[in-house]
Design a protein around this nucleic acid. Sequence first.
DNA 1: TGCCAATCATATGTCAGACGTTTAATTGTC
DNA 2: GACAATTAAACGTCTGACATATGATTGGCA
Lengths: 245, 245
Amino acid sequence: MKIDPNSPDLSAQIAKAIRDAIMSGDLLVDERLPSEAELSEQFDVSRPTVREALKRLGAQSLIRTQRGATGGAFVNRLRFEDAYGQQITTSTLLLSMNDVSFGVACEARYALERSCAALAAERRTADHLATMRAEAHRQSQPGLTDEAFCASDVAFHRALVDAAGNPVISYQLAGAVEAMQPLMNMITFSARSRETIVGFHTEIADELEARDAALIDQSLEDLATYTNRLAQSVIDARQAARATD
Amino acid sequence: MKIDPNSPDLSAQIAKAIRDAIMSGDLLVDERLPSEAELSEQFDVSRPTVREALKRLGAQSLIRTQRGATGGAFVNRLRFEDAYGQQITTSTLLLSMNDVSFGVACEARYALERSCAALAAERRTADHLATMRAEAHRQSQPGLTDEAFCASDVAFHRALVDAAGNPVISYQLAGAVEAMQPLMNMITFSARSRETIVGFHTEIADELEARDAALIDQSLEDLATYTNRLAQSVIDARQAARATD
DNA sequence: TGCCAATCATATGTCAGACGTTTAATTGTC
DNA sequence: GACAATTAAACGTCTGACATATGATTGGCA
């Protein structure tokens, strides 16, 4: 838990020291850290520097702070819901900043999603099924904006993932599924393509109701293929339009 | 891009405003943010408050800072390698802080890992194969510590995942695979169980060489079952030991 | 005695101003 | 024209202070 006082990133070092203490179990959940004043004395730095370190940890949801007499910084119990948000933010930016093609992202998403088809078939409840049917129905309504359609698409697929009944899987796939949304938004769905997608969704819901894992897997593969072809046609159309400019 | 000056979390609000600007595309990769002094004027807060906000963003690798005349904060191109680390940290803490059972974590890991068997069979290079064989060989050496064995196990499986040739999948699975390591460490492998696991690994490498996706899938399922049973026996043994205390 | 209100102590949140350090651009000289 | 010294901009850190929230303490009153 020592830092190099000559290096020009004291707050980063302090954050790392505390993070390591949390990960190694030296600091337990809900345990209170020393006050900012005490930490600044321990590390021999000023309070603003300590605060910068604490903000870093707060940004990762590793600690929470509380004001007042018995306040301070506490080791935060990292919840799946908290982690979802970060996971989605990171995944979305990764895709948009690294020129990940629609095909690669789509492949990843459906490969991962298919992995929970068997579990979902086994464990799905009536609730999951109801959510999926409701979203499929919403998607068939005319006059839906592209964004609303995509949001519903995400909700449908998240329900499928959640049906697997494994929070770790749900967490991991949250990124893959949600991060695709901006890419999907790029595709302007025609009425016809929407109809096809809703068809797939209804099919999947039916198969999930029948608990037929193999059929779900097949439908997801078909949906992946279709989505990819749709994206390709949009890309081709854009290139053609650019060529005639 | 407005903030409420009466709320007691100015730095969090500022961080959110900038984060939103990055995610919406208002700020592009490598674009320079205003200097801390300018930001403090724009948001009408002090420089330390601005700095706390920037540290939050830095902790998420959304920005990087540079000192000197042409320095400042720049929108960072989020790289997969950067995201790996955060993903692993978060996943590890999620498992340890939420009392995720070995069974649930194991199920998630292998379900996701199996999803890339087909892609890996298709795209694996000689390099991936060589890495996997090298790790399998290392694992068969006597006198290996439990930790070294588990680290090698992780390396083996990461090579398998990377063989799928999809960076998005590699990123998503980094968390699932690496976060399992502390749980695996809890299990003291006997010489015999190590031998069995190495057997599975050799089998998987052979099947990958033959590009037989179905067999890989089967082997992974068997390995998952075996790992689970191993963990169960360790847990049972511990409970029995506690009962006789 | 028992309860309630005022006070206090502690800790975080924020601010203002300052100095040090790094770095690139500018300037000046040979 | 090239190299060295200077300068300016920006981050990194420190000091000290005030504001605010909140639990604990204390005191008074019924």
